[in-house]
Write a protein that binds this DNA or RNA. Structure first.
Lengths: 180, 180
DNA sequence: ACCTGAACACCGTTCAAGT
DNA sequence: ACCTGAACACCGTTCAAGT
């Protein structure tokens, strides 16, 4: 990448992060380009789709979640490890409003730039779940896909204006249902 | 209302119902007016906001849910009555994609045309819940607002492309957590 | 190799002009 | 009293023209 292109890319990303944190995942791409003092075409070539942009924005957070799951796998309280990780997974969306819907859609679309990251995170959670299940510390009638769906539902809930304030309590109820 | 106005109103509503069932709650209002062979201004005067339009579209379904809750209050198995009603409440969204978010937002906005209906439905659910609680058939650390949030989360889940197929199973898990 | 911004096809919302 | 559709301010996406 040429030096000037690299500069545009980085600046665009920084501006996009600020705008998305402020306005959510469906922020205006035009607005991002405008605030970055860059032509709209420049944004589109660096990030051909909205998913591609969000993939770069979210990658580090998603990687972190996967890494933390791996770290928690060595814990000797597999149910607490699972719940701890779930809590962080749900909390992750706090800084990025409206992102849950996008992640759910990405899971269904192998073409999406976000697809791979979603699958990886889901697998990481699945491993924590089955470890807890193997030790009899989590209900067995639940699989990785369902766990991911629960996380998404709780994250969505936390993102809704009037419903969000119940997210924590409902998380505890559901977490205890998972532990059984 | 004048006869010609009434005719437009009814036709608009029928077309809107079809389009919303097909494309979801965020369907293009322009498209609805176009398909109804009616000026855009006509749609806007009959339904000044999108919420106003959806309020009329959903009213009968929402009223039905409230009525059914009332009917179930006479059941002598309060926990089953509650779960039966919850199941229907979640299923209600099937025909109207993307409506859950709107209902959640309406709950937070007293100005919304959908506000009153949402509050009514929530109260109906709350009564079923507290009846079950009074008989020791439902966990006590749950209130009507939280019950509504759970319904919304499960309805949202059912509406997501890849997550939806787990909605039924997750409903059962959560329902049994409510019954305790 | 990279950038720009006009162009196109949409959208929600308003409102002067018509019947 | 009611209807129409142009007008305005946005949006996502593409692509010819520039450097």
């Amino acid at each position: 990448m040429r030096a000037d292109a690299k500069k545009n890319y980085d600046h665009l990303l920084a501006v996009a992060r600020a705008v998305v944190q402020e306005q959510g995942a469906d922020a205006s791409l035009r607005d991002i380009a405008r605030r970055a003092d860059v032509g709209l075409g420049t944004l589109y070539r660096h990030f051909p789709t909205r998913e591609a942009l969000l993939e770069v924005l979210l990658r580090s957070s998603l990687d972190e979640m996967t890494a933390q799951a791996a770290a928690l796998e060595t814990s000797n309280a597999p149910d607490e490890a699972l719940v701890t990780w779930l809590r962080e997974a749900v909390a992750f969306t706090k800084n990025y409003h409206g992102v849950t819907q996008l992640l759910a859609a990405a899971l269904d679309d192998p073409q999406s730039a976000l697809h791979a990251s979603c699958v990886t995170v889901r697998s990481a959670g699945a491993r924590l779940l089955s470890r807890a299940q193997a030790k009899g510390k989590a209900r067995r009638d639940l699989n990785g896909e369902e766990l991911f769906a629960l996380i998404a539902a709780l994250a969505w809930l936390g993102d809704q204006p009037s419903l969000g304030r119940h997210a924590d309590h409902l998380f505890e109820i559901i977490a205890s249902a998972i532990r059984r």
